[in-house]
Write a protein that binds this DNA or RNA. Structure first.
Lengths: 206, 206
DNA sequence: ATCATACTGTACGGTAGCGTTCAAAATAAA
DNA sequence: TTTATTTTGAACGCTACCGTACAGTATGAT
C-alpha cells in the first residue's frame, strides 16, 4: 500500500472550496428572494459565478441544495444565539444585552426574509420545521428562561414559570415590529428603534 | 328601445353564481396548501368541480385569480374584526371579549395557513401587502387602541400611548403560540388554551 | 323554436425549467 | 508528461403547466 497523507489527497484536479460557499451564498439569497419554486438553478449558478453542472456535481437535486442551505442557516442561528452568552454587569444589563442581540438578529433583513420564506416552503417537511424551530425560536426561549431564572434567584423578579415569562418578554420586545417588517410596511429598524423597543418591553415586563 | 329589467338581464344562458364561490373557495385552499406557483389551475378547477375553461372565462389569469382571492380575504378580515364591536359588560369583560375573538380568529388553521403563505407570495406586490396589513393587523391594533383609550378614560389603566399599549397587549396575548403554529410545532389551540393565554396576557399587562 | 351565452372535455401550441450528456479546457498530483 | 479529476458551455430530452381553440351540449331569455 502506498503512503498517503492524513487527508487522503486524491489525484486529479481538486475541488475549488470557494465555489461551495459561493453556491451556498447565492442559493440562500435567491431562495430568500424568490422562494423555492420561482428560484431557478441557472439563476443561482449565474449569481455564484459557477456553471450549472458544477452545482449538480455537488448537489443531487434542487431540493437537496435547498435543504443544505436551510441546514446551514439552522446551524448559524444556533451559533448566533449562543454568542449572547457573553454576559457581564448587573442583571438588568445582562437582560438588555441579551435582548439587544436578539432583536438585532431578528430584525436584520436577511432574517426577516428567511422568516417570510421558510414557513411556507417547509410546511411539507415537518422534520426540518421542528429542527429549525428548536435551533431558532426554541433555543432563544430556553436561553432567556435560564437567564430569567437567575434573575429570580437574585430576587430581581418573580414569576411562576420561567418559560412563560421568557415568552412574555420576547413578545413584548418584538411587539408589532416583526409583523410590519414581514409585510414590508416597514423596511428596517435603526439602532434607536431597537433600543426604544427594548426599554419599553423590559419596563412593561417588570 | 326595448323595456328592460333594472339589472340588465342579458340574453343567453346566465352564469351559475354558485360556481364563482366554488372557484374562490377552491382557489383559496389550494393556494394556502401549495403556494402560488405549486398550485395549478387544473387542481383548482377539479376541486371546485368546474372546467378549467370556466375559470379562464371569469379570470383572465392565474395571477388575477390569486389577487381576487386575496382581496376577498382582505375584506373578510376587515368584517371579522369589525364584529368584535358587540361589547357589553364592564371593561375587563370587554377586553376579554375582544381578545377572545381576536385569538380565536388568529389561531384558526385557515388564518395560520394564510399568514404562512401570504407574506412570501405578495412580497413583490407592495400595494396588496399594505392593504392586507391595514385591513388585518393594522385594524386590530387601531380597534384595541380605541378600546384601551376608553379604559383609560374610566381610570382602569394608564399608559402614555394607546397604540403602543395595544401592541404590547396583543403581543402578550399571542405570545409564542403564533410562531409554534406557523412552524407546525403545534397544530391547533383548544378553547382552554386560548383562555389560558388570554388570562395570562391580560394579567401581565395590568 | 330560435338565439345567445355558459359550460365541458379534449386537444393543442408554447414556454420554462429540471436534470443529463458530451466534448473540450483547466488544474494539480504522481 | 501522464493521469485523474474538476469545471465549463452548449445542446438536449423531458415534463409540467399555462393559456387557447374548438366542437358539442346545456340553459335560459325572447
Amino acid at each position: 500500500m502506498a503512503e498517503r497523507h492524513a487527508q487522503s489527497a486524491k489525484a486529479g484536479r481538486p475541488r475549488d472550496p470557494s465555489k461551495h460557499s459561493a453556491i451556498m451564498h447565492s442559493a440562500l439569497h435567491t431562495f430568500l428572494e424568490r422562494g423555492f419554486n420561482a428560484a431557478t438553478i441557472e439563476q443561482i449558478a449565474a449569481r455564484a459565478g459557477v456553471s450549472k453542472v458544477t452545482i449538480y456535481n455537488r448537489f443531487t437535486d434542487k431540493e437537496t441544495l435547498f435543504e443544505a442551505v436551510i441546514k446551514e442557516q439552522t446551524e448559524q442561528i444556533a451559533e448566533a444565539t449562543m454568542s449572547e452568552a457573553a454576559l457581564k454587569g448587573d442583571f438588568e444589563a445582562q437582560l438588555n444585552a441579551f435582548g439587544h442581540g436578539l432583536l438585532t438578529f431578528l430584525f436584520a433583513s436577511d432574517h426577516v426574509a428567511l422568516d417570510r420564506m421558510l414557513p411556507q416552503e417547509i410546511a411539507h417537511l415537518p422534520d426540518m420545521a421542528h429542527r429549525f424551530f428548536d435551533a431558532g425560536p426554541g433555543q432563544s426561549r430556553t436561553q432567556l428562561a435560564a437567564l430569567l431564572e437567575r434573575g429570580r434567584a437574585i430576587g430581581w423578579i418573580d414569576f411562576d414559570n420561567a418559560i412563560d415569562a421568557a415568552e412574555d418578554l420576547m413578545a413584548l420586545w418584538k411587539g408589532f415590529a416583526d409583523v410590519e417588517l414581514k409585510f414590508g410596511v416597514r423596511h428596517g429598524m435603526s439602532g434607536a428603534d431597537i433600543n426604544r423597543r427594548l426599554k419599553r418591553g423590559t419596563a412593561v415586563f417588570l
